[in-house]
Design a protein around this nucleic acid. Structure first.
Lengths: 359, 359
DNA sequence: CTGAAAGCGCTTACAG
DNA sequence: CTGAAAGCGCTTACAG
């Protein structure tokens, strides 16, 4: 009550009746043209005299006019809204994905609706159908594991909404997609270890339901065999992509005495962290006694000590590319491949840090 | 070309002309009532005979009718859209925040627009004004550091959009807000260490621009002094909330020989990770020689070994509460405190793990 | 308890 | 090159 304007006073003031936002009518009046002409100018359509265009632009600037997105949506064919559907346990994956989608959408004046979904829910198909009926999204981006679920794809297709999948494992060719080459990345990581003299390499397989788990294992096997090596069954462990399963594998590998591999390739970072945690507990020095590498380059890989050698997935770039495919879809001419066939592959990066040493 | 329905064939099919979504008119016709009555039923308004209500609901179900959100927005006073504005380097913070906001919004049929902002951009005020003019959001949630920027608050207020701030440090009383008690949390963490026999406690201060950094330091000081202890200046280090600054502090603390504190309170997890990384490098065993605690309970605190004792911020709950304040604002009666004065405080949790031992 | 009319702010299709 | 009319799918007053 003693400040220049207290909260109580502010509250007493009449609620500023939705601060007069100017509309297309205001601009048309000020510029002395029809609203149709204003519409043409705002949408950069042709067939407006340069002089008229300037007049309208000046009026719009003066009135700080911003076309109402909702009105444009209702009247027109586009909603300027893209949906990002996800159900992924990794915060960094989702945030990086979201950042890429939003970046591309902003370039075209689109906004992004974040729609987490429960991929385990039995009615996920209906949930998505309901979402798409309520809001006419101009496009949808699907990430794992949603992008591999038939009910999800069915629902989106039934609603007639264009969509792009990021890193799908199933239904190739069913939709536009962006991805990186998991197999090649695992292959190169294995080559990296081989190149440093490692021969006794263990491998932690990822969640068996994830397509990438199999691709990564394939890449590992390919490189080993090209090097004339056959992986030792006792050093191949099945994990679940979780820290706990990495810890478990570490126990199995280090706990029993017996031979130790000289390097362990965990097919995602979380499992690598688990292995490293167990190693530290068991007094196995990394990388001096055993080298460890991961896959994903999650933020934790720079937090853990030694910093983890891993594969960087271009998550933000994948997301940007996915949004780009969605938004530039209209411009495809007849000779170009169809939207559904579109596919972009982005490069990964092997990030060599401190968890590996040469033998 | 050999499968039951190839991509190429699917593309040739006429594009399913925006799969006939049913409208309020369709429902009204089928139910034999006016659209106004359908509207009443869909919005659970009173003054509809039970029989009519049932008739309309049946028709709506049959047609799988979903009110078009954009049309509702344009015609009515609400957009059913809430904006989450953020600019925070922590993925997990943003994702947890987003999850809480979305959870509450879904309960009321609202959707969430994720709008990352560049808090360093000179025109951030205009960017936000433009956003709010383009889409009439029903509310906005502001997180640090945006919630402490006058230009941001000015822009939102000028647009007349209700907003709630999460964990603001500045301008108390200027808006509705939710927060936890940083000072008390740091106080209790310090008491926890004292209770385990620690007296020589070092402290890593957070980024000086963050209000929480000062509150956490205050809580630490208070507990120390209540215990009759004065912190040793050489053990108080200024950090930046980053892993690197924690590493730096670790070097300053462990590198020089001389006395070691028995415990180090890093005022966020990232800095704690840095300290632990340096300790491991320098051969200082944690917690045997030095205990370390953090603040925030980021995902990394369960990845690092030993697992970090820290303070869990109820981020998702804070976000849920913020959205709840926004959405339930209308129902406040005259006797209740005004929306602007509203303030909710949520409890934190001290999570004791393995990075501390008794002395 | 129910409905006919007007209008939200735009775009579409059409006319000139 | 420009505009008048209709309409997107709803809600808001208002009338009965």
């Amino acid at each position: 009550m003693t400040q220049s304007k207290t909260t109580a006073e502010r509250v007493k003031e009449p609620i500023p009746a939705a601060p007069a936002v100017s509309t297309i009518n205001d601009v048309a009046r000020l510029a002395g043209v029809s609203i149709k002409t204003v519409s043409r100018v705002m949408n950069n359509e042709p067939n407006v005299r340069e002089e008229t265009r300037t007049k309208v632009k000046d009026a719009a600037n003066l009135l700080k006019y911003r076309p109402n997105l909702l009105a444009r949506s209702l009247a027109g064919a586009r909603s300027f809204l893209v949906g990002l559907l996800y159900d992924n346990p990794s915060s960094s994956y989702v945030i990086d994905m979201q950042a890429g989608v939003i970046a591309r959408c902003r370039e075209s004046g689109y906004h992004v609706l974040s729609e987490p979904q429960d991929s385990l829910a039995p009615d996920i198909g209906r949930a998505i159908a309901s979402l798409l009926a309520t809001i006419r999204l101009d496009g949808v981006i699907l990430t794992p594991p949603l992008c591999d679920m038939a009910v999800v794809l069915d629902a989106v297709e039934a609603a007639g909404v264009p969509y792009v999948r990021v890193s799908p494992s199933l239904f190739p060719g069913r939709s536009a997609l962006v991805e990186m080459d998991d197999t090649l990345a695992a292959y190169e990581m294995t080559k990296h270890l081989l190149g440093l003299g490692h021969k006794d390499i263990g491998f932690l397989r990822g969640h068996p339901e994830h397509g990438s788990s199999h691709r990564r294992y394939d890449g590992f096997l390919k490189a080993m065999r090209e090097g004339g090596l056959e992986p030792r069954p006792a050093w191949i462990k099945q994990g679940q992509n979780s820290f706990a399963s990495g810890l478990e594998a570490g126990k199995a590998l280090f706990g029993r005495g017996g031979d130790l591999p000289s390097a362990i390739f965990a097919s995602n970072d979380e499992m690598a962290f688990g292995v490293m945690a167990y190693a530290q507990q068991a007094g196995v020095r990394i990388p001096d006694e055993v080298s460890v590498v991961g896959f994903d380059d999650t933020p934790g890989s720079m937090v853990i000590w030694p910093h983890l050698t891993t594969i960087r997935q271009p998550v933000t770039d994948l997301a940007y590319a996915a949004a780009d495919m969605l938004l530039s879809r209209a411009h495809v001419d007849d000779d170009a491949p169809s939207f559904t066939d579109a596919r972009r592959e982005l490069p990964f990066e092997l990030v060599a840090r401190d968890s590996v040493r040469a033998v």
